[in-house]
Amino acid sequence: MNAFQILGISLSSCFAILVVLGVVRRRLRPLPGAAWAALWIAAAIAIAEPDLTVVVARALGIQRGADLIFYLAILGMFIGFFVMYVRMRHLDEGLTAVVRRLAIVEARHRIEETARGEHEASERSPTD
């Protein structure tokens, strides 16, 4: 086992353990947690046994294990972008809702203040 394998397996295992701890401590939901844990365990196995990626690649009709990793990385990146975009849209909708609510509450408050001022002025005027 070379230095890269030792480092890669150690890091992947650490991340897998952190994900499991996250699920146990309820900071991660079980389904995404399981997906992340599977990803890190798969990374550790691929680093420990590089020939295994060749076997999987050939089973899928791809010649080289490195190509399989590359394609999976591209696919993962696009899925990541999509998930981020969906989250950003939800945040955007939330921000608009907050801005709208604040704007209407402030406008209503201003109208009430004006009405109160006019009412107080009309009550004062007969005695002036």
Partner: peptide, 25 residues
């Protein structure tokens, strides 16, 4: 005019929906 102010720019569609909500209220 009465003025309802968005604290940050949200776009014309958002502004119209705010106007609609305000009008209904």
């Amino acid at each position: 005019a009465e003025v309802v102010s968005h604290t940050v720019n949200r776009g014309q569609g958002a502004a119209l929906q705010t106007g609609f909500r305000y009008g209904l209220d």
